[in-house]
Design a protein around this nucleic acid. Structure first.
Lengths: 321, 321
DNA sequence: TTGTAGGCGTTATCAG
DNA sequence: CTGATAACGCCTACAA
């Protein structure tokens, strides 16, 4: 491994001069600087990150924690994060699993964005307490070193429920996410509230877990109980797609017999026929905003919690009731 | 940040004693060691990764480079990598984009697995030349510091082509991947060879790029040219699904009028009706093997290039011709 | 058994 | 303008 020491030797100067030259410090002559830079390039010198991190106490790397790597859904969110971070001179790395939690306390990364409900809030709080900067997207966590960037789940759920009610439906299934999910809880709570405002609406809850499989299971239950047209609010699109496919295979007519609305507006929703109604928000913006908040936290700029707004996307999957 | 120095002060011993104790070196008394460990725990000391990396010249982190983060398809591959690496005491981080290329030369990671054809082979070769250990999954690259773990694309493509020919089809479209893709080239080449062995088969090539959208475009072309039943070999499932959906929407009967076979056996293929025929291989194993090869390279164990074998999965999407 | 000291590569302070 | 020198936190001969 070639270090500034090697360059110094070759250039016949001291290591500090090399360091200055490499860092563009105007203290050194144009001439010496040019010579040093040339030698550095010739030896293709690359600074050692560990040494730099040790000295500067910052690695310029941000980690994002995901529950798993299957993230079809997270692609855009991550893209949004990366763009902002790179622009600010930071690298983004994606981590998953508790094994990687060490990266933060060991100071391998300067901060983290959390989108992984299997990462315990207590552990996060401890990290925050130790001075680590965090942005959480999937829970509430109040600490000066933690910022929250949440979806406006409540507004979204209310929009969805009001939409189907407005369309004339009076029997409504709600397929939930997993127990631990913050998003699911929020959406469910708001959905219930919206339903309660319409006392003539009958409502049935089905427990799901945000996977396509759980949507399929829900479909089976719904088909078994089927007597008259009903509406189904799946708390995410993944489940809505599973539900949708299963019902279509069983020759149910979506948008006539069974009306479906999802949440997230994942890419797949566009391909269903009729189109799946859903709740949309900018995933890219979600990631971008999370990154910006984290950078601010790291720079010591005061920040407020942020919110990503959502809109309703109508679709043929919800017809007139 | 709390360091061994702080612990030493509190324990009234020297920093080396602390270091020994923490590393379980039998040089220090059980007693002193216990006392030091207790203090360390109380202060919840965590070793600084930068310092350790600087000293040990190894970060115990492996990076995997992906073209983008959308990787619905890569989930299992990454999972396979992570399991092996964690077992060996390494962390896995996922990177994307040229900005992150620096992690390797700066020695922030001990090695890399590459599944990103936008990462130039020349650059990889330079890195290998500098002594960095690499495993490539998406290209051929011969260098002592580089190992290859490839899918058996040729066998897979041959299997696919032979399958449709055996089913009696004599007109065959092949929808390719993007120009730069190693997998696409390999599959196409083997497909052509298999076709040439059957001179009565008519064959048309359609250029795609491995995305669902290009599958949709291919579908449009095929529909326009449609006169009699034809078979289509999509060089990956993603495109096959796009093709499939588009054809179904246009009321074509899959497995009767148009016969489709894909490659990869992604999860979605199970959900199509009829099931999409495809080429399967263990994605988890691919990742696991890549990791093992990398670890061996790092440890200086000699390695041969490896290959992941594939099998044919029959499906109703290819009917009798 | 424990302590002293040097070094990993970089940056930054302070003399010269 | 340039160079010695210390420091970041950790590890490890070697000395005591």
């Amino acid at each position: 491994m070639i270090s500034i020491k090697d360059i110094a030797k070759k250039a016949g100067v001291s290591i500090s001069t090399v360091s200055y030259a490499l860092n563009g410090n105007p203290k050194v002559t144009e001439e010496t600087s040019a010579r040093i830079l040339k030698i550095a390039r010739e030896m293709d010198y690359v600074p050692n990150a560990a040494a730099r991190t040790l000295k500067s106490r910052s690695s310029k790397i941000i980690g994002v924690y995901l529950t798993d790597f299957s993230g079809a859904f997270y692609g855009e969110v991550l893209q949004g994060m990366k763009e902002v971070l790179n622009k600010r001179g930071y690298d983004l790395i994606v981590c998953s699993g508790s094994y990687s939690h060490r990266l933060l306390p060991q100071r391998m990364i300067d901060g983290a964005i959390v989108l992984d409900h299997s990462f315990a809030s207590e552990e996060l709080l401890q990290l925050a307490e130790r001075g680590h900067k965090l942005v959480v997207l999937d829970r509430e966590l109040n600490h000066p070193n933690v910022n929250q960037v949440h979806l406006d789940n409540k507004a979204g759920a209310a929009l969805a429920v009001e939409y189907v009610i407005e369309k004339g439906h009076r029997k409504l299934y709600v397929v939930t996410g997993p127990q631990g999910s913050y998003d699911s809880k929020q959406r469910l709570q708001a959905a219930k509230q919206a339903i309660e405002r319409n006392p003539d609406v009958v409502y049935v809850e089905i427990e799901g877990n945000f996977t396509k499989e759980s949507g399929e299971l829900a479909a089976k239950q719904i088909m078994k109980e089927y007597k008259e047209p009903v509406a189904v609010f799946c708390l995410n699109d993944e489940m809505a797609i599973g539900l949708y496919n299963t019902l279509v295979k069983a020759d149910f007519r979506i948008g006539e017999q069974i009306h479906i609305i999802g949440f997230d507006n994942i890419e797949l929703t566009q391909y269903t026929q009729p189109r799946l109604a859903t709740i949309d928000y900018s995933k890219r913006k979600w990631g971008a905003l999370a990154s910006e908040q984290l950078i601010k936290l790291i720079m010591g700029v005061p920040v407020e919690h942020e919110r990503i707004y959502v809109t309703l996307i109508e679709g043929g999957s919800v017809g007139e009731g």
